[in-house]
Computed example of a mutant assay.
Amino acid sequence: MDTIKELITICTAKHCTISSCESLTAGLFTSAVASVPGASAVLKGGVVTYFTELKEKLVHVPAELVHTYGAVSEECAAAMARNTRELTDSDYCVSFTGNAGPDTMEGKPAGRVYCAIASKRGVKPFMFQCDAMTRNEVRQYVVDRMAEELLKEVKENG
């Protein structure tokens, strides 16, 4: 939680806003940010697109992209972050999509997660393979890691 507190402090000082588009984390990132006092100064909102069709309908991930690469893909995570950042008019958007397990999905192993951070400068993708973790451990791990990555991004470029 210290990372998220620092993220809010830095974003507030730099007048940066953040948003999220979450699938496998189902709002966990947004909830973590909102739990910290001062979040209302930086958090524009979050979209949960757990079903693939909502990725297409709510945040305009092209159906052809999903068909070609899958909902669990770097390409999908990038589109989720880019499109949600534009929809929310935020400075930064972080996205989460993946397979928390326990079974293989779209040919991807349990624990495979793709995330992205979108800003006006572009989109940075991330891939994690979280082995030997429960579903909720995977979800918490990627939220923590992406909070760290977003903090680095804001410090460097915010």
Results as ranks from 00 to 15, higher is better:
Thr3Val: 15
Thr3Arg: 11
Ile4Gly: 02
Ile8Gly: 06
Thr9Phe: 11
Thr9Gly: 00
Ile10Trp: 10
Ala13Phe: 13
Lys14Thr: 05
Ile18Glu: 04
Ser20Ala: 15
Ser20Met: 01
Glu22Arg: 01
Ser23Thr: 07
Ser23Met: 09
Thr25Gln: 08
Ala26Arg: 03
Leu28Ile: 02
Thr30Phe: 00
Ser35Lys: 03
Ala39Ile: 05
Val42Pro: 05
Val42Gly: 07
Gly45Asp: 03
Gly45Ser: 06
Gly46Gln: 00
Val47Ile: 15
Val47Ser: 07
Thr49His: 05
Tyr50Ser: 08
Tyr50Cys: 12
Phe51Leu: 11
Lys57Ile: 07
Leu58Ala: 12
Leu58Ile: 15
Val59His: 07
Val61Cys: 06
Val61Leu: 06
Pro62Asn: 02
Pro62Asp: 11
Glu64Cys: 06
Tyr69Leu: 02
Tyr69Lys: 04
Gly70Phe: 10
Gly70Thr: 11
Gly70Ser: 14
Ala71Trp: 11
Ala71Lys: 05
Ser73Met: 10
Ser73Asp: 07
Glu74Asp: 06
Ala77Met: 07
Ala78Val: 05
Met80Gly: 02
Ala81Met: 11
Thr84His: 00
Thr84Gly: 02
Thr88Tyr: 14
Tyr92Val: 06
Tyr92Glu: 07
Ser95His: 06
Ser95Thr: 03
Asn99Val: 13
Asn99Asp: 07
Ala100Glu: 11
Ala100Leu: 12
Met105Gln: 11
Met105Leu: 15
Met105Ala: 09
Pro109Arg: 05
Pro109His: 05
Pro109Leu: 11
Pro109Thr: 01
Gly111Gln: 04
Tyr114Cys: 11
Ala118Ser: 14
Gly122Ala: 06
Val123Thr: 09
Lys124Met: 13
Lys124Tyr: 04
Lys124Arg: 14
Pro125Asn: 15
Met127Leu: 10
Gln129Ile: 08
Gln129Asn: 13
Asp131Thr: 11
Ala132Ser: 15
Met133Leu: 13
Met133Ser: 01
Met133Glu: 02
Arg135Val: 09
Arg135Cys: 10
Asn136Arg: 14
Asn136Asp: 15
Glu137Met: 12
Val138Tyr: 05
Gln140Leu: 08
Val142Thr: 05
Val143Gly: 08
Arg145Pro: 00
Arg145Asn: 13
Glu149Asn: 09
Leu150Val: 11
Glu153Thr: 10
Lys155Ala: 01
Asn157Phe: 10
Asn157Cys: 09
Gly158Leu: 12
Gly158Asp: 13
Gly158Met: 12
